[in-house]
Amino acid sequence: MNAISDPQTLIPAEADQGFAVDLRHGLGLRARNTMAFQDVVRGIGLWRLALMLSWLDIRLRYRGSVLGPFWLTLSTAVMVGALGFVYAYLFKTPIHTYLPFLALSLTLWSFLSSMVSDGSVVFTQAEGMIRSMRVPFSLYIYQLLARNVLIFAHNVIVIVVVFIAFDSPVSWSDFAAIPALVLWLIDGAAVALMLGAVCARFRDIPPIVSSVMQIAFYVSGIMFKPDMLGHRSIYLLYDPFYSIVEVLRAPLLGHLPSQMTYVSALGFSAVLCLLGWFVFLRVRHRIAFWV
């Protein structure tokens, strides 16, 4: 009888190694918090494994391809070039200011969208490993984050090329993007904890998430500059996608976001983290049975 068939039992040898996954149910809030926290900490201790698995995911995804993940870079570059001139004309915006904005926006949105869509299937895609290996559930979250960061690093090439071509200035405000990127990773982990667990139980939610992301792309200030809305741009602060994108995009464009943008982004992030942690506490011991 193993630890999964008997939730009250742990195999001592595996527990000593720190890889046993405690799936006991019927515990109090304090005990569930402790177990979930231990899961997260043990996952951090396996960061080398998460990085290796993420790199393996990328290699398997583009197996047999000549350019590999650089196909994403090429497709992003083509989209920036094709849409940049058209929308600059439609919006009557100088191309030398709009194209860097669009290149940065599309690259960041690709990163954000991938974290959300991958987060909704993070546990179902790892079904084989969950059923055959006893590792912390948080390991799959770190694997997702590492994979998307590596892919994002490839797409940064598009931003660098466009910024150099249009002589976009570099300023000290660019360093404000570093804490914003950390906030993105925290939010990505929270999204994966929440959506990954819920979507493991309800398999019809990932298509809904995909539809929501498509709608958010058009209304969250990705294709258009916020100042094009005039005084109505204040309503964008009620859009979590806009706030999260803007705190990272604005510093890279040479100016700091407004104080209200930071408040909006941090507020939405706090709510997201609380929801993610709450869901993880409630259903952590059931994930292995749902996948």
Rank of each mutant, 00 (worst) to 15 (best):
I44P: 07
G43C: 11
R63K: 10
W55Y: 14
L53R: 05
G28P: 01
T76M: 14
V41I: 12
A36L: 13
M79Y: 10
G68K: 09
Y62I: 02
T76G: 13
R61D: 09
R30P: 05
L74F: 09
G45M: 08
F70Y: 15
S54M: 02
L72A: 05
V80T: 05
R59M: 07
I58P: 06
V78A: 14
G28F: 01
V66A: 14
V40H: 14
V41T: 14
F37Q: 07
F37G: 10
S75W: 15
S75K: 12
H25W: 12
I44A: 11
L29A: 13
D39F: 08
L49P: 02
D57M: 11
F37T: 10
V41F: 13
R48S: 13
V78K: 06
W71F: 13
W55V: 15
T73R: 06
L49R: 08
S65H: 06
L49I: 10
R42M: 09
L53V: 00
L29C: 09
S75T: 12
S75G: 13
A31H: 00
L74R: 01
V80R: 04
R24P: 05
T73P: 02
N33S: 15
P69H: 01
L56V: 03
G43L: 09
V78P: 05
A36F: 11
L27Q: 07
W47D: 02
Y62S: 03
T73G: 05
G45L: 12
W71V: 13
R59N: 10
G43M: 11
V80Q: 04
L53S: 01
V78D: 00
L60K: 15
M79R: 08
A50E: 06
L74E: 00
M35P: 06
S75C: 12
V41A: 14
A77E: 02
A50L: 04
R61S: 13
I58M: 09
L29S: 14
A36N: 08
A82T: 06
S65Y: 08
A36Y: 09
F70K: 04
P69Y: 00
R42G: 07
T76S: 13
Y62Q: 03
G45R: 13
M52A: 14
W55I: 10
F70R: 07
L46F: 06
G68D: 07
S54T: 01
R61K: 14
L67H: 08
S54N: 03
L74H: 00
M79P: 04
M35W: 12
A77G: 00
L49Y: 14
S75D: 11
G45D: 05
V40C: 14
R59K: 11
A31N: 02
